[in-house]
Design a protein around this nucleic acid. Structure first.
Ligand SMILES: [Mn+2]
Ligand SMILES: [Mn+2]
Ligand SMILES: [Mn+2]
Ligand SMILES: [Mn+2]
Lengths: 218, 218
DNA sequence: ATTAATATTTAGACAAATCTAAATATTTGT
DNA sequence: ACAAATATTTAGATTTGTCTAAATATTAAT
């Protein structure tokens, strides 16, 4: 598989939302930042190679084999992202571009050794699950912090309210995107939460919780 | 610079023996496992881009700028090799092929963070020196262990005598290719050596030393 | 100093990945 | 159901990196 073919396979995979849905030529073109005509050519090639099912004007989805290729790429991409954050102190939002390159390195031994070095992580710095060597993984969903049950652990991936006061609050309480948050307790009376972030316990109001997105794998 | 261009630049660099000597079209073709006609085309392109000086029928060498590019690639290649051995427990002879891919990853921050993670290593697992961020490095020479002065440290890179008894001796004494050897003391009387390998001190005869190649940076 | 051998370049072709412009198919709105 | 809008494919061109075969230059040998 060439680098380009691999990126197209990943695009089809991601656009299919992990469900291997059929995706359109234009969708792929937008994702890949190429023209629809280029996509058509590539879809024919991927079909030839047996990694995609493409029907003229009808769209494209991955074959069983194509799905395996996609999952291997996703696995490598996310493992490298963990590596960059955990071992090289990259920030949450600096890793994607480099991982986009590293995911194409061909060495099964490298991937598996990296997995081991990192302690077989389950999720990447964006809270997305990392497929295991044989392609299994849990799906991630994004939920507001006030909607998850006590005991849930997830990655902080966004805010609903992006006003200055709210962001200032998060900063003051050392809550940042990419942090792992564990819900310890929920107060019946006012819906306030007792959570753990970066090893520290803090309490937050229902209002705060209602504006923080968590990515959780179930 | 494309991946292909980068590999050609490295080829010119290595064939020039670090001296930026002029190298011939056929030499480059052999090194790159391509045909001379392909090399001619690429040399024209590299000249256009200002990284090489090419004169028809006369050969090619790197420009100042090309040399910088080459040294950056060598730096990345060797840092990745150290990473693979030190952090992922790859064997001495498994790293080159993967490093050949990893050296093309474009991220200065990645390279420098990796350097730091590894503790700013001076040599790669083959005993070859690693250029610093600004392109400086010492040259390596290969010498027989019995020819280096006391106090010298180097990487074991080969044997002169490859007979079974000799290899068995090395195995018994836990000396392997890729090991760092430090010469602690030399016995005047018989030329026998007191050396340190993998933290252990051992004594070896002049005959043994005369059949072990060490790569040292001066 | 010719000739033979070797090295190098040129010419022309090809596959991969992309593009633009034109043609065709599908979908949507009335 | 038809026209208009949108989506998709086809045709033809371009760039990059490669190749083979033929032409030319350099070097070595007599
Ligand atoms: Mn990513
Ligand atoms: Mn990629
Ligand atoms: Mn190497
Ligand atoms: Mn390479």
């Amino acid at each position: 598989m060439t680098l380009s073919e691999e990126d197209y396979i990943k695009a089809i995979y991601h656009l299919g939302k992990g469900e291997n849905n059929i995706v359109s030529t234009n969708e792929v073109a937008e994702q890949m930042k190429t023209k629809p005509s280029s996509v058509t050519d590539m879809m024919k090639k991927l079909s030839e190679k047996g990694v995609a099912n493409y029907r003229k004007y009808k769209g494209v989805c991955l074959t069983e084999h194509g799905l395996k290729v996609a999952l291997t790429l996703v696995r490598k991409h996310r493992l490298w992202e963990v590596f960059l954050v955990e071992k090289l102190n990259f920030a949450w939002d600096e890793v994607h571009e480099v991982a986009e390159q590293l995911e194409h390195i061909k060495s099964e031994k490298l991937t598996d050794s990296l997995d081991k070095l990192l302690g077989f992580p389950q999720v990447d710095p964006h809270g997305d699950p990392i497929p295991s060597k044989n392609g299994e993984f849990k799906k991630a969903v994004k939920k507001l912090l006030n909607e998850v049950p006590v005991g849930t652990s997830g990655t902080c991936v966004g805010v609903k309210d992006s006003s200055a006061p709210f962001l200032k609050f998060l900063d003051k309480n050392r809550i940042a995107l990419g942090d792992t948050i564990l819900v310890l307790e929920k107060e019946e009376f006012d819906g306030s939460l007792h959570i753990q972030v970066k090893g520290k316990d803090i309490r937050i109001s229902d209002q705060i919780a209602a504006n923080l997105y968590l990515k959780i794998t179930e």
